[in-house]
Amino acid sequence: MTFFSTKRLGAFGAVLTLLAVSPSYASTGNGDASVKILRAITVTKSADLYFGKILPSASAATVAVAESGARTCGAGLGCYDTASSGAFHVVGTNGEVVSVSLDSTTATLSDGASHAMTVDLGTSTSSLTLAGGAGDFSVAGTLNVGANQVDGTYTGQYSVSVNYQ
């Protein structure tokens, strides 16, 4: 009969335990986080759209003011004084591109006494790059003068929207 010491079994058991192994598959790297904070856009009007002084005729006709301010006087009408296109100045974050749009492409001018004329508005600017943090754009208009339009001072309002893209 072979007799082993109990101690020897114990030691063998311990050796078995030390030989247990865990597997390795994950990797690591460096990452960055950032954000650009924009300043609020401010839009100020630098000029009103002014068609000048118009002598109407017996036929309806139009007066057009281009973005340059140049006026085209419709046949039969008399046009006086110097016209002006609408102009806006935009201030925002340097280098950003903003979109420009007219809130409505028509405006109504009224003499405050039930006489009115419509204006068709337009601008060639749909976007603007804020070089140096600012930019400008103009608004053109075509005024529809009625036949024998009643004399008086006619005014109306229009608005534009400017947004970061």
């Binding site: 924009l38 609020a40 856009i41 401010t42 839009v43 100020t44 009007k45 009103d48 759209l49 002014y50 068609f51 000048g52 002084k53 118009i54 002598l55 109407p56 007066v63 008399g78 006086y80 004084d81 609408g86 806006f88 903003v98 979109s99 809130d103 405006a107 001018l109 003499d111 004329m117 204006v119 508005l121 608004v139 208009g141 005024l143 003068v145 339009q149 009643v150 004399d151 008086g152 001072t153 006619y154 005014t155 109306g156 309002q157 229009y158 608005s159 534009v160 929207s161 400017v162 947004n163 970061y164």
Partner: peptide, 22 residues
């Protein structure tokens, strides 16, 4: 999404003076 500002406050004015013949 970045937001914009419209120029609605202090909206621009369009005007004309209609004359009658001298």
């Amino acid at each position: 999404m970045a937001s914009g500002v419209s120029a609605a406050p202090g909206a621009a004015r369009a005007s004309v003076q209609i004359l009658r013949p001298v």
